[in-house]
Amino acid sequence: MLRKLFLNVEQKISSGMFEGIHHPLPVKARFELIMSNYIEFILNHKDEFLFYEQFCNSPLVENLYLEDSSSMFQPFYKLIEEGKEQKLLKDYDTMLLLVLIYAPVTELAKQYYRREFEFNDRNVKDLIQSSWDAVKA
């Protein structure tokens, strides 16, 4: 039951992240839209985000989390690979790039929920740009 709940939340996150994404958009524009969608999801779905974060950091993840859920985030993995092929992104391991992108967002989201950080238009723009700068070639 816990695994099913986790997969359901993961599907909601994935659907939110990739809303409005179209391949003809340049890599950077798709990156910015995905990140903006992800931040918006976090801000509008506190319970799901915090559950997802706790579950991912729990020892239960090893017993319940299966690789089949990673397919939900394939569009982002493909975007990273496309960016590397176009020499727009660093030629690092994809998982390393994803950590450089996601970690600041998730940490600031936790600070936001503790009322230690404000997600205003300027901060969101700066965060997305910083994430891009961390991985760009």
Rank of each mutant, 00 (worst) to 15 (best):
L2D: 06
R3A: 12
K4T: 13
K4C: 04
L5M: 14
F6S: 13
E10W: 09
Q11F: 07
I13K: 07
I13R: 07
S15P: 02
G16K: 03
E19M: 09
E19A: 11
G20H: 00
G20P: 02
H22K: 14
H23D: 15
P24N: 14
V27L: 02
K28P: 00
A29P: 00
F31Y: 10
L33C: 03
L33N: 07
I34Q: 02
N37A: 00
N37F: 00
I39A: 07
K46Y: 13
D47I: 09
F49C: 08
F51K: 01
E53L: 14
E53D: 15
F55E: 11
N57Y: 08
P59Q: 08
P59C: 03
E62A: 08
N63H: 09
N63T: 11
E67P: 00
D68T: 13
S70L: 12
S71R: 13
S71W: 15
Q74L: 14
F76L: 14
F76Q: 09
Y77S: 04
L79V: 10
I80L: 05
E82R: 07
G83A: 05
K84Y: 01
K84V: 13
K84F: 04
E85L: 11
Q86I: 06
K87Q: 10
K87G: 06
L88I: 12
K90Y: 06
D93N: 15
M95A: 14
L96Y: 13
V99S: 10
Y102W: 11
Y102M: 06
A103P: 00
V105E: 06
L108R: 12
L108V: 03
A109F: 01
K110Y: 10
Y112A: 10
Y113E: 04
Y113Q: 02
N120M: 04
D121I: 03
R122Y: 12
K125M: 06
L127A: 04
I128M: 01
S130A: 14
S131G: 12
S131A: 11
W132L: 04
A137R: 07
A137L: 10
